[in-house]
């Protein structure tokens, strides 16, 4: 894999960290003699998203996927690290600049029932970014653009006069996509865009998202817990575990040859629709409480390959044949001998 030149990279995430303060109020802490409690949702995560690709983040609940999405679109402030969009740090930009940058990326949320204002007509919902970024000269041209957008996502231009409740879940998600497209963005963050939808509707939305990517040259950050959806969509995939990136690899190769033991475990856990009867390792344990994460490599209590070093030091991302992986077992070549006994975890 050749290192991408700077011009290929659209979004660069460097050492991104976000800590949430879960402490009780000051007075309670003093009276009950409790220390401050913090949760590190995202811990020193670095990756880059190249122009025109679909970069997917996968992980189980609590792995920090959605927090990273919010940090990237600047809905949350990072506790450390930075996000560079086309080389510029949005948090350091002047307000006029930030506004200009802001129009270049959009977000699609998980729940189309919560992300559309029920009191607004669909036409107004889609026109809001057009108005906010002054992309249309007058009302008539804005309305015309809304009609075009609705047709682009497979709805009718006349649907602009309807309210969100008149649409099904899949149609609402189409409206959300039309809204995201209305600002003519280059980059769209999709946070679990299909997990609230039925499979046949999911297929429609995934196909639509691919068509739009080809048509408008979009770059996606695609966040999902569903590995088969990710495999279908992604060019490259980052696997998160308890706020840390454990592996970043080329999409298809990751599924053939997962490097990190956690990635293998996740893949093994996916129900097998083809019923090939493949051998699989038994999944052990659950994600630990992120308030009190394990020392060293955070996966070591569940890892069949863990040794003393894994319990003390935390591994860094190291190059592998198909990308990067943060695992001492991979680094030291211990990965080749799969340890079948399920040691350790409860």
């Amino acid at each position: 894999m050749s290192a991408p030149s700077d011009t290929d990279v659209l979004v660069r995430v460097e050492g991104l960290t976000r800590v949430f303060d879960l402490s009780k109020p000051w007075l309670n802490r003093v009276i009950e003699r409790e220390p401050k409690r913090t949760l590190t949702a995202v811990d020193d995560v670095s990756f880059e998203i190249r122009k025109g690709e679909t970069f997917a983040l996968v992980g189980e609940s609590g792995s920090g996927k959605s927090t990273i999405a919010k940090l990237i679109v600047n809905l949350l402030a990072p506790s450390g690290g930075r996000v560079l969009f086309d080389g510029d740090d949005m948090r350091k930009a002047t307000s006029a600049n930030a506004r200009q940058m802001r129009s270049r990326f959009q977000m699609i949320f998980q729940d189309p029932f919560a992300s559309l204002n029920p009191r607004w007509r669909v036409g107004d919902i889609i026109a809001e970014p057009i108005r906010a970024f002054d992309l249309a000269s007058d009302k008539a041209s804005a309305a015309k653009r809304v009609g075009e957008l609705l047709e682009t996502v497979g709805l009718a231009a006349s649907d602009a006069a309807k309210f969100p409740h008149e649409f099904s879940g899949g149609q609402r998600q189409r409206v959300a996509i039309a809204r995201a497209l209305s600002a003519k963005p280059e980059f769209i963050v999709c946070d679990e865009p299909t997990s609230a939808l039925d499979v046949s509707v999911q297929a429609q939305i995934l196909n639509l998202m691919r068509d739009l990517q080809d048509e408008f040259g979009l770059t996606y950050l695609f966040i999902s817990h569903d590995l088969s959806v990710v495999r279908h969509m992604a060019t490259r995939i980052g696997v998160l575990y308890l706020g840390r990136l454990v592996e970043v690899s080329e999409g298809k190769a990751l599924f053939q040859n997962p490097q990190h033991p956690y990635t293998s475990m996740l893949l093994d856990a996916v129900p097998d629709l083809d019923m090939t009867g493949r051998a699989r390792t038994q999944v052990v344990g659950e994600i630990p409480n992120p308030i009190d994460p394990p020392s060293g490599c955070r996966f070591h209590p569940r890892c069949p390959l863990a040794n003393a070093r894994c319990m003390q030091d935390s591994p860094m991302l190291q190059p592998t044949a198909i990308g990067e992986s943060a695992c001492f077992a991979v680094e030291e070549g211990r990965r080749e001998v799969p340890n079948t006994s399920t040691a350790g975890a409860k």
Binding site: S200, A203, L206, L273
Partner: peptide, 16 residues
């Protein structure tokens, strides 16, 4: 056909 699978590649999912 609309379910993406881990086993084989398809560029487009069958849609109903």
């Amino acid at each position: 056909g609309s379910i993406p699978t881990l086993a084989h590649d398809s560029d487009r999912l069958v849609q109903i």
